[in-house]
């Protein structure tokens, strides 16, 4: 089972862990990415996420399919938020359920690392005195 969602409403850890729960699963790893209140020592006011939606969904699906086949994951869920997020809000949740724990950790790590490299989603950090598109410049 793969469940991919790009949402402009708050994400739910309960929903994601419920989606991957099953009797054949021995381990579930849940990665929850939240909005941090600082970056490089500077106070962040809020974040704004923007996505090229159809491709963001298809790239997340590719990641889930790869993770599922490489680690024999039974179920994998990737939910990503878009829009304006306040400090502490959840930007991304990845849930992976496998028969044994090691595979769940590895598949989850692969999914979040790859998501950050390939999925067309952009984050703008808003500071008191300006704003910056994260990772845009070297």
């Amino acid at each position: 089972m793969i469940d991919i969602q790009l949402k402009d409403t708050p994400l739910s850890t309960t929903e994601c862990s419920d989606l991957v729960a099953s009797p054949s699963t021995g381990g579930t790893v849940l990665f929850v990415g939240t909005v941090r209140d600082h970056t490089k020592g500077k106070a962040v006011v809020r974040l704004e996420f923007e996505a090229y939606a159809p491709m963001a969904v298809s790239e997340m699906r590719k990641i889930a399919e790869e993770a599922k086949s490489r680690w024999s994951a039974d179920k994998i869920v990737i939910h990503h938020r878009v829009g304006v997020l306040a400090i502490g809000e959840i930007a991304v949740i990845i849930a992976v359920a496998t028969p044994h724990r090691v595979a769940a950790f590895e598949a989850c790590q692969y999914a979040i690392d790859t998501l950050k490299e390939t999925v067309p989603i952009w984050k703008k950090e808003i500071f008191e005195d300006g704003e910056v598109w994260v990772a845009a410049h070297p």
Partner: peptide
């Protein structure tokens, strides 16, 4: 995503993807 040698057509949906920063 397409490599540099990929040929474009008039009706393609073409998108500029600057460095991504999701997650």
């Amino acid at each position: 995503y397409r490599q540099d040698d990929f040929a474009l057509n008039e009706k393609d949906e073409i998108v500029i993807i600057p460095p991504v920063s999701g997650g």
